[in-house]
Design a protein around this nucleic acid. Sequence first.
DNA 1: TCTAAAATTTAGACAAATCTAAAAATATGT
DNA 2: ACATATTTTTAGATTTGTCTAAATTTTAGA
Lengths: 215, 215
Amino acid sequence: MTQSEENYLKAIYHLGKSKTGVISTNAIAEEMQTKPSSVTDMVKKLADKGLLNYKRYQGVSLTSDGKQKALSVIRKHRLWETFLVEKLNFNWDEVHEIAEQLEHIQSEKLIDELDRFLAFPKVDPHGDPIPDKNGELEPRQSKLLSNLDTDSSCICIGVKDSSSSFLRYLDKNQIALGDKIRILEKEDFDNSVHVQIGNRKLHLSHVIASNLIVT
Amino acid sequence: MTQSEENYLKAIYHLGKSKTGVISTNAIAEEMQTKPSSVTDMVKKLADKGLLNYKRYQGVSLTSDGKQKALSVIRKHRLWETFLVEKLNFNWDEVHEIAEQLEHIQSEKLIDELDRFLAFPKVDPHGDPIPDKNGELEPRQSKLLSNLDTDSSCICIGVKDSSSSFLRYLDKNQIALGDKIRILEKEDFDNSVHVQIGNRKLHLSHVIASNLIVT
DNA sequence: TCTAAAATTTAGACAAATCTAAAAATATGT
DNA sequence: ACATATTTTTAGATTTGTCTAAATTTTAGA
């Protein structure tokens, strides 16, 4: 498996999570920041290796082998992100690019020992679940803050968008994973929400609220 | 800098340590397990980038920029090896291949934080010195066990050969870095040495003794 | 010193992953 | 249903790092 192949599988896995059904060539090209013609070539190669189901003009889906490979890369990515934050003093907005490199290191023992060293974490610094050695993800029920009703309460357990700019916005407003959030009021005209976190009252836009994953 | 370029610089640096003067195309090809014609191509590229001094048919040497880059890769390699042994329970004979991958991860902050996390180690698990952030190596005087006289004593501080097979030989015979070694007798006919380590007496062949670095 | 051997470079080819431009298939709107 | 727009694929080129085989330069032996 080359790094490029691993990146395609990961992209296809992520696309499969949000949308349902087969994944289009253009969607993969967009996700991978590349051209559709390049995607066609790679998709053929991965289909030849038994990692994708593919018929010309019909889009792709992961085979069970392909899904396992994708989950293995995601496991490595999330464990390395956890390592960077927990052990090397990185902030949660600084770890993605480095984990993109580290996720391609080939050594099963390395990743299993890293897992042990980190005490088998269940989620990464962004609240994303970490697949176990067998590629199993612990199921959990979650909603978006934007979908909660007035007067309800929740715990912030993750972020949908983990871009640096969003994460820094949360840092600046002292919103962190584990925080208890209470919906005080929802504004109809722009779908923004007034919330209480600890003893602070905040006004969050719909964009912000719809990127916060809560229990 | 590509991984391949980094590997060439590292190989050229290592060749420069043992032999003196300019380094030949064939020597690099041997070290890199590749063909001389491939070396010529890469050497031209690195010379164009100002990392090597090169004249056709005259061999190469590192420029000061090239030496810095090589030392930076070696620093990363040795810090990762230290991490694997100190934190992830790897044995010293298992770390080389993984460190060959990890040494190419691009992030200055990553390696500086790793250095701090490991408490700024001076040597790696094989006793090789770790260059500091500025590429400086702490000078140290060292000899080979095979060059010591009868009745002298020394401390084992490193290995010249760090192949798995040699390292496992040392493990099997309970010879470790830091051990005090006393030369009891030298055999003229095969240059083997009788030594005492702790309260154990061992008979080491010349090959073994000439790969043990001592104070 | 002259010739043969060894070392090195050049020339041309290849595989991987990408691109552009053009062709083919599918989807859409009236 | 048919013309047009969109999506996808194909064909051919490019880059990086490698290779083989041939040519060139240097080294070394008689």
